[in-house]
Simulated assay, not measured.
Amino acid sequence: MAVEHYIGLMSGTSLDGVDAVLLSADSKGSVQALAHAYAPFDPSLKAELLALNSAGHNELQRAALAGSAVARSYAQATRTLLLSQRLAPREIRALGAHGQTVRHRPGEFDGVGFTLQLINAPLLAELSGISVVHDFRTRDLTIGGQGAPLVPAFHRAVFGRADADVAVLNVGGISNVSLLKADGASGGFDCGPGNCLMDGWVQRHQGTDYDAGGQWAAQGQILPSLLAALLAEPFFQQPPPRSTGRDLFHLQWLDDHLARHVPQARPVDVQATLLELSARCVADSLARFAPGSWQHLMVCGGGAFNGHLLQRLQVLLPRLIVSTTEAQGLPPMQVEGAAFAWLAMRWVRHLSGNLPAVTGASGERVLGSYTPA
């Protein structure tokens, strides 16, 4: 089998836009990220996707239209990437398109629950001229899994080491950790809010999309009573397998705690507390659910650029080396896109993509649905 090329398309719970990553894969499954492109979401689409995380008027129609808008953004990122590499659509074996998560309720209601990632896959296939693998999470749910996180299998393939136990932390809107032991065993789970609360709070009070480098948070003081109340959320005591999303961690959740505990808090102090929450939920989860001889925490996602957050993680995890995945040859903003290109490759080759030890599923499965070009 000659080397094949795949593109992974990822838009996460931070709702900032689409990362497209070009991946090569040889006959043995060894992969290399070759290039990256980014397409920001239009502000009106971002606002609509955020609104669709909650029940609302005419949401079925709005969700369908938003799925088409997401497909157009994905197609734009794909075109930009192809042009930058002077590649034609026919040279790409498949796109791995995650879609935009607006609901994630595994195991609820009927014992299976549901997870919803908005993407009009047929439209994306028509616009790009490339076959699309999509809906990666649902199959795992049907056999008792959480449907997330799905990136640990890719992390194992790319970052796993035979001489050390290492962990990979993805900090998007929600943070999740992959646990990669030297003996080949793997684990992982969602930790809790990554950027979603910090981004929402800074947008409300500073009018910016994010707190660059955590500089605003670094100017504030942690509010102990608020932090304790936030950490008392039952999710943080729930053992893996577990996953979460904006269904739980949203600004109204924060506002309710503020009203009860620190109604007159300074906004900058709330931001400092939210950053500490994002760091603590990682450190506490590792201590409670994954004690071991971890030597290195490799950070990816948008949170990898929050210097203050990385400093807090290093203080809370003094025995680990905390660094970004850049040092391992894969830039932080390319990791998740590369993971979904890898999952598309796994679908094409009829190979499993989930890790039951991570998701809680009853077995390994080929993940995704396929829409041909």
Rank of each mutant, 00 (worst) to 15 (best):
R280H: 14
A94M: 11
F109N: 06
R86W: 04
V158P: 03
C191A: 08
P152H: 02
R319A: 14
A121V: 04
R72K: 15
G292N: 09
W342C: 07
G173P: 07
S278H: 06
Q237T: 12
L223Y: 06
D247M: 00
H104E: 02
H155L: 12
S285W: 00
A33E: 14
V31G: 05
N120P: 06
A279K: 06
S369M: 10
G329K: 04
R266W: 02
L179F: 03
E364K: 15
L34K: 15
K28W: 06
A69C: 07
V348A: 05
L343I: 04
A51W: 01
G368W: 01
P106M: 12
S84Y: 03
V102N: 08
S243Y: 02
F249H: 08
L275W: 08
A25Y: 01
F236M: 13
A47I: 02
S68E: 15
P224R: 13
P356F: 07
Y38T: 06
L251Q: 15
A88W: 11
L355R: 03
H308A: 15
E59H: 12
S285H: 01
P193E: 13
E336I: 03
K28M: 11
G111C: 12
A157L: 01
K28G: 14
L254W: 07
L60Y: 07
V348Y: 12
R204T: 10
A51L: 12
L169H: 12
E336G: 06
H250G: 11
R90F: 11
R86I: 00
I321T: 15
